[in-house]
């Protein structure tokens, strides 16, 4: 490959990479370690090993209902962003029309602005034209930030697919719904799945939009973790966080198996 790298540079690189690995992963490891502690304070080293905080979490109505809310929110968000994003991605990558690059910028623009800005905007909308944000409000907010991801993954997926297949179907006299159901949507499958993964992950993990929209009576897991951390952290928060970390690990590995992480990076 490249010309030889000096030996001391190699040694230096290995030390550097190990240091960064510790730095990147230690925050996750200490959360997992704290969740297994016997102490009710978050001290290091943990005095003993116990699973009592997990029992506590699974007996806590507050955590269970927050978990249920987060799950519903993430699933509705996935459905909405895939339903809106897929057709937009098909239009942007399969058709040539005036204003295409402008529209493409419009669709990706939610990624450019700080999400707290439009979360406050949505709070103002829901307070002015309704009785304040609700779960629906949060689904709308999360769909705005996850939509660009779906559009990106589906577009990236369609680039690898043969556009002539659709043309062939058209020439052979397929109706529009036959072309979409039998040719185009199956071609988008991988991109839609990847987009759905990202949308689920972003929605399930988000605290910023949820906190700034301040929907009364709606509390997601990240919101609950945030407010517990602000006031009285104890190892049951660590137990909930560990469950969320394990879910993330599972999703990342699945994503790697199906699409390959290097493609995403």
């Amino acid at each position: 490959m490249t010309a030889a790298t000096p030996g001391f540079v190699k040694l230096l690189s290995i030390t550097f990479v190990l240091a960064i690995a510790v730095y990147m992963l230690v925050p996750l490891i200490v959360v997992i370690a704290s969740s297994l502690s016997t102490s009710q304070f978050l001290v290091f080293p943990p005095p003993g090993f116990s699973l009592r905080w997990y029992t506590e979490v699974f007996n806590s109505d507050a955590y269970l209902s927050a978990g249920w809310t987060s799950l519903k929110l993430a699933l509705f968000t996935v459905a909405a962003s895939v339903a809106l994003g897929t057709p937009a991605a098909i239009a942007l990558s399969r058709f040539r029309f005036p204003g295409r690059s402008f529209l493409s910028a419009i669709f990706l623009s939610p990624l450019l602005l700080p999400s707290l800005i439009f979360a406050i905007g949505l709070l103002i909308v829901f307070s002015r034209y309704g009785d304040g944000p609700s779960l629906t409000g949060l689904v709308i907010g999360h769909t705005v930030i996850t939509l660009p991801y779906v559009i990106r993954t589906v577009s990236a997926n369609l680039i690898d697919m043969d556009p002539h297949l659709d043309e062939a179907a058209r020439i052979m006299g397929a109706r529009w719904w036959q072309r979409y159901l039998l040719v185009i949507l199956p071609q988008c499958r991988t991109g839609m799945a990847a987009g759905a993964f990202f949308a689920f992950n972003i929605s399930f993990d988000d605290a910023v939009i949820a906190l700034f929209m301040r929907a009364p009576n709606v509390e997601t897991l990240p919101m609950r973790i945030y407010s517990t951390l602000e006031f009285s952290p104890d190892p049951s928060v660590a137990a909930v966080s560990t469950i969320m970390i394990l879910l993330t690990i599972f999703m990342v590995l699945l994503l790697d198996r199906i699409f390959g992480l290097s493609k995403i990076a």
């Binding site: 990147m24 992963l25 230690v26 925050p27 996750l28 490891i29 200490v30 959360v31 704290s34 978050l42 290091f44 992950n201 399930f204 993990d205 988000d206 605290a207 910023v208 990240p222 973790i225 945030y226 951390l229 952290p233 928060v237 660590a238 966080s241 969320m244 970390i245 993330t248 690990i249 999703m251 990342v252 992480l261 995403i264 990076a265």
Partner: peptide, 18 residues
Amino acid sequence: VLPLMTSVVIRTFGWLVI
């Protein structure tokens, strides 16, 4: 990628403990 995909709230929690 693993830390990136973990909620910021949880990563910050880790830093509070550290």
